[in-house]
């Protein structure tokens, strides 16, 4: 094996030094792609090739299409009712359910976390266990490229998936209903898709965080699933218990009842999936005028019409801010921990 000429390599060595012009994000094969984008594209292809991603996409696609199908079968029944919501006929595709199968939005709020967790739970620890981390870190890249590339790759996969799903649902609606969505409805759908991406990004960052603090990917996957189950099943039960415990013995005024109700609601909103469902309900059901309890005085004189898009967005702004903030905080903690971590070979 020694007979191979090394001179070829030595010539390349000097050629290579001559053309060092990185920092261009070009897809041209002859030009040099910036190392960061090389990493992102490798991570994306890793995600797309993995079995767990294929399984989850199949699961999400099937359940969502099933829920859209039931929504479509429900349309003739609900179309009869003349209410202010009929203007937003198209959005019902996302929210209608016949009681046997949950609606599209409920599926997203339930399965979205699972998708986020599965894309990130072994982000860092698998690199450590395989012994690739120290090798990659000794290449001329900054350390944060690794965590940024992993996050960005998973996020772009999720975005692609959700945009596709959203378009599929809109397309199915166009074909089977024959009514095009209005501009307002289309914007609401776009905001809903964006919101779903942010929601999944939150869980993605949580799982990346676990992948940094736990050395075993099985542990980090379990930790992520535990948090998911806690928030989707137990959290509401606990809040009910607390609410029962602190409920006033006797309600003296309307104001008191409203305050109590809002307090309980705010406790519920510590749950990211509650934030998500608050926001989706407001976006996709324009007739929703408030997310909390209101006193009679506040409701008095209100005209029962759907809210314009701007007003709906204003109403969900705190929820969206909360979700984005949670995502950023988790990412910042992961980033800090990862940068501080000493990397040795396995």
């Amino acid at each position: 094996m020694m007979n191979v000429n090394i001179t070829a390599i030595s010539q390349k060595r000097f050629n290579n030094n001559a053309k060092k012009s990185p920092y261009s994000m070009s897809l041209n094969r002859n030009k040099v792609q910036h190392p960061f984008w090389v990493m992102v594209s490798k991570e994306i292809s890793d995600q797309v090739r993995s079995w767990r991603f294929i399984i989850l996409v199949a699961l999400i696609a099937l359940t969502c299409l099933a829920s859209v199908y039931t929504a479509l079968t429900q349309f003739p029944k609900s179309a009869g009712a003349k209410s202010s919501e009929d203007i937003f006929f198209f959005l019902k595709l996302f929210t209608l359910s016949d009681g046997t199968l949950p609606s599209f939005t409920v599926f997203i709020s339930f399965l979205g976390p699972l998708l986020g967790l599965s894309l990130g739970f072994d982000a860092i620890n698998s690199e450590m266990n395989r012994g690739t981390l120290s090798r990659i870190l000794s290449q001329p890249i900054y350390r944060d490229y690794i965590i940024n590339a992993k996050f960005l790759a998973a996020l772009s996969v999720v975005s692609f998936l959700f945009v596709t799903l959203g378009l599929l649902v809109v397309g199915a609606g166009l074909i089977f209903l024959g009514i095009p969505p209005t501009v307002d409805e289309l914007w609401r759908v776009i905001f809903f898709v964006l919101l779903s991406i942010v929601y999944v990004a939150f869980w993605l960052n949580l799982s990346i965080f676990f992948s940094i603090i736990f050395r075993q990917s099985a542990t980090s996957a379990l930790a992520g699933i535990a948090v998911w189950i806690f928030f989707s099943i137990f959290y509401n039960m606990i809040i009910q218990l607390i609410a029962k415990g602190i409920a006033p013995q006797q309600i003296y005024s309307e104001q008191q009842a409203v305050n109590f109700q809002n307090f309980v609601l705010n406790l519920m909103r510590l749950n990211p999936s509650q934030l998500f469902s608050d926001a989706t309900v407001t976006l996709l059901m324009p007739s929703v005028r408030s997310l909390g309890a209101l006193t009679m005085a506040q409701v008095e004189g209100a005209i029962p019409t759907p809210l314009p898009l701007g007003q709906s967005l204003l109403m969900v702004w705190p929820q969206v801010t909360g979700l984005v903030a949670g995502t950023i905080v988790l990412f910042a903690i992961s980033y800090y921990l990862f940068m501080r971590r000493e990397v040795r070979s396995r």
């Binding site: 290579n16 060092k20 094969r29 002859n30 190392p35 490798k42 001329p140 890249i141």
Partner: peptide, 17 residues
């Protein structure tokens, strides 16, 4: 090739090397 490209070596050259 991945290592080579992290070192900003063009893809074609990386492959032959």
């Amino acid at each position: 090739i991945y290592t080579a490209r992290l070192n900003s070596i063009p893809e074609d050259e990386a492959k032959t090397r």
